[in-house]
Amino acid sequence: MKVLVAVKRVVDYNVKVRVKADGSGVETTNVKFSMNPFDEIAVEEAVRLKEAGKAQEIVVVSIGPAQAQETLRAALAMGADRAILIQTDEAVEPLAVAKLIAAIAKREEIGLAILGKQAIDDDSNQTGQMLAALLGWPQGTFASKLALEEGRAVVTREIDGGLETVSLALPAVVTTDLRLNTPRYASLPNIMKAKKKPLETTFAVDLDVDIAPRLVTLKVEEPPKRKAGVKVADAATLVDKLKNEAKVI
């Protein structure tokens, strides 16, 4: 079985994100980028499936600028077999991403697609769900456990108030939550080998997908600064403030 993993190049989680002066987006010049952490978990899960003999090949896909090659190489260094970059300098929205991945999934005859549940830059949490809908495949989102058996994927999902287990007929889409696994460190020999693994670059037009944005960003601004706290005299005042000022109880 072939496993597809989608990875996104995002502003590194350690970077304190700043809004651009003109309010059009966040500052990305000279900012450190790395693989979306949820996608690292997706790559790790695919590599573990391959190591367990349940997957034969891992294809990583990224949609983004030429620099996203670095992100794909990082996935190859973790153990993916080959990479496809759908190169674009435009901002792509989840629907466009889902369509592009769907096109690759069909072309490559993928048996299982593993995606991060969301990317830490826009936090959309939509691509996996849209991909499943476009392909007409079942989906298991927010996975904290994944087991493959006899043409099915058994996915334990993290839901409000507990865990839910679903059994999906393959091919299927799975999106990863934090507790699914702890991604490995890429080893030095594998980083060196990754340089020689195949990386194909293609474009949205070649896949016949229209990636024109459907949404308009009006403005981006920093969240309001947190105001200083106040000390209350007693519990009664606290309850009163929670009720009437904060209106939370």
Partner: peptide, 9 residues
Amino acid sequence: ELFDPVLEE
């Protein structure tokens, strides 16, 4: 192209 990921890892 090799040194950068090696240093990062």
